[in-house]
């Protein structure tokens, strides 16, 4: 029994669930908004200088701070809910698979969906740039080039900054039968992070994982981005380990 078999089984059961639709819908929000954001002369002028890179920069800032955390909260809840809603945990746990394979194949599926979100988002951003180029002739996208390195780094940073959130939310999604609880926890912590960064300006906000995607766009933290990303990875490892331990030690309720 290898991990790939368990992973394949996970992918098969997510067929026709809301996960894929949520992924595509979430990925389309920012590209769609940016098509209409270029309506004012000021926006057109600002974008004309370096259209591709400014378009992608504006997109990833909104995506990383607003859409991606919400998408993670939803997807980490929806995926374990497949088992809760269908009452299939007992069947799954009594199948001949190591518990680690069951747990980590679900965890990998979440990451796969996040990566799918990134792919769809970037493709839709390209498409949205083409639409802007067609609609507003003053912006000459094809007279400029894309800084691919900058684009890849920005995507990598955004993904890494969310690793801790993925692990925490995945734990909550696996832990609670009621879908409202992990969503409430996620949104609560996300709003708290925004308040701590924007309103309170808490000096230790770099220790709060839900704040990391927001810190990525703050110039104040640009010098310590690498450190923040390492913290995100460390938190992700810690909370994934904790979530696995909790999963292993939990009793499957029997009447």
């Amino acid at each position: 029994m290898n991990m790939l078999t368990s992973f394949r089984s996970e992918l098969l059961k997510s067929k026709r669930t809301a996960s894929l639709y949520v992924c595509l819908f979430a990925a389309a929000i920012i590209p769609l908004l940016l098509v209409f954001d270029t309506a004012t002369p000021q926006a057109i002028e600002a974008l004309s200088a370096d259209p591709w890179n400014l378009h992608f920069k504006a997109g990833i800032e909104f995506m990383g701070t607003l859409i991606l955390p919400m998408f993670i909260i939803l997807i980490c809840t929806l995926l374990p809910q497949i088992e809760y809603r269908n009452n299939t945990w007992k069947q799954l746990m009594s199948s001949p698979q190591p518990f680690a394979h069951i747990f980590f194949s679900k965890f990998l599926t979440v990451h796969l969906l996040v990566l799918l979100f990134f792919t769809a988002y970037n493709l839709l951003m390209l498409l949205s740039a083409l639409v802007v180029n067609y609609r507003i002739t003053a912006i000459e996208f094809f007279d400029h080039s894309i800084d691919w390195h900058q684009l890849i780094v920005a995507n990598f940073r955004t993904y890494s900054a969310c690793l801790a959130i993925i692990s925490i939310q995945f734990w909550a999604g696996m832990r609670f039968k009621n879908a409202v609880t992990p969503i409430a926890i996620g949104f609560g912590l996300w709003i708290l992070a925004a308040v701590l960064v924007i309103e309170v300006k808490w000096e230790h906000v770099d220790k709060f994982p839900f704040a990391y995607p927001i810190l990525m766009i703050y110039s104040k933290y640009s010098a310590v981005i690498s450190l923040i990303l390492w913290k995100s990875i460390a938190y992700a490892v810690f909370f994934s380990g904790l979530a696995y331990l909790d999963f292993r030690l939990r009793k499957v309720k029997a009447a």
Binding site: K15, R16, T17
Partner: peptide
């Protein structure tokens, strides 16, 4: 214990390789 959104064949396919 069945996945409601899947057909009978797809439900069995989920576990076929596992078994």
């Amino acid at each position: 214990s069945l996945y409601r959104q899947l057909t009978a064949r797809e439900n069995l396919e989920v576990y076929r390789s596992v078994y």
